[in-house]
Design a protein around this nucleic acid. Structure first.
Lengths: 225, 225
DNA sequence: ACCTGAACACCGTTCAAGT
DNA sequence: ACCTGAACACCGTTCAAGT
């Protein structure tokens, strides 16, 4: 782990990809992606703001690496238990993914687009495709179902997470939002006003419902058992 | 519409919320949300970069207003046609919403969080809740289904849209991604490699599949007809 | 080889000053 | 009332210079 000096004049580097990523992950958790800048990282690691450019091509590469680090172990932590079928495991896996993304506001943006180049992201993709294959879905369905589930999970996290860092607690925020809806014109928005008191259950409840519906929809496509 | 001078010394203002929003929407369409800055707007409207602060509290307010402007007419353009039930109409409405968001990269972030305060956003919410109520779903299901559908649509647009502005055409990008997957270790990622050729169909195909599955899942919750 | 210093081209935003 | 000018506190990034 630690660098062994092979010659007299060699100084051990103060920095490393690992140290920088660790700092980035920490700041991702406390202040979200906007809090991780070249300056804040420099301060946290007691180096010059531009020092990280020796280890990363640019800020984007660092964010993607930090985002991937957050997914560590996720694919492995959800084994196939008795009584749980593959789609139930997929459900839990998505819950875990959401939890990881929600606790690091903005991390969803680092996972978001493109293929899974990063190691933990790749493991997650593999695990999801594997679970979906186990259900008996056709290959085409497996691939499309994978995309549907990952886009819903990551996409909703990208939407929901930002509010968590700046705003007060979720309950009071939602109360305020419901009150906002109640003041809407009953003539122009009759349904909205009628349902206002039910709007904005906790974000977690919302997410689980949508994920359950999505997975129930996939069950419709399953061959008869 | 045009300002009538009520006294001698009054000059007609060169700027207005409308003109600024129009400029912002245009730049949202051409270069995405990153392209709309105080400086670029100033240049487009031939005013000082800080001039817009007379009309908007901050950049966030402007972006939200521009994002809402994009949703204009969306709720009305999808009437209940014969042979189409309410969920089919909801499907089309979501497609329209996605198209609007995808053609203005980053606009999804302006729609994303919080309640629908903006007029067009409100109309869209009302329309969706109305359609879902027509299906016969319970009020609780209506509200949760609304959240699921809107989060999937806006969330996936937030993920998919950014790539559209910078990258080349979608087909070549996806070919590259599939090739990337094929180079993955067959031992570590057997399923990924096997399905690599099927991965990344067009984003539109992906989205429609997921939306269809989601709405099919909602059909499961419908009372018997 | 590893990090620093200075510099550059950007941001959003405030506020006093001009007309 | 409406807009400008100057200034401030931030960004990411490059590159020559130090050790």
């Amino acid at each position: 782990m630690t660098q062994v000096p092979t010659a007299a004049g060699e100084r051990a580097p103060r920095l490393s990809r690992e140290r920088i990523v660790a700092a980035a992950v920490e700041m991702l958790e406390s202040g979200g992606v906007d809090a991780v800048t070249t300056r804040t990282i420099g301060e946290a690691l007691q180096v010059h703001p531009t020092a990280l450019y020796r280890y990363f091509r640019d800020m984007d590469e660092l964010i993607r690496e930090a985002a991937d680090h957050i997914l560590e172990g996720l694919a492995e932590e959800t084994p196939l238990a008795a009584g749980h079928d593959a789609l139930d495991v997929l459900f839990d896996l998505c819950l875990g993914l959401r939890t990881a993304l929600m606790s690091h506001p903005g991390a969803a943006g680092g996972v978001a687009s493109g293929p899974s180049r990063m190691p933990h992201e790749r493991a997650l993709t593999e695990r999801m495709l594997q679970l979906l294959t186990l259900t008996g879905l056709s290959d085409d369905d497996v691939v499309l179902a994978y995309h549907a589930v990952i886009e819903y999970t990551v996409g909703s996290a990208a939407i929901d997470a930002p509010g968590k860092s700046t705003d007060p607690d979720e309950d009071s925020r939602h109360r305020a939002w419901r009150a906002d809806y109640l003041t809407a014109s009953p003539h122009d928005f009759p349904v909205t006003v009628r349902l206002a008191s039910r709007l904005y259950p906790t974000q977690d409840t919302q997410f689980r419902y949508g994920l359950q519906v999505l997975i129930d929809g996939l069950r419709n496509k399953l061959p008869a058992p």
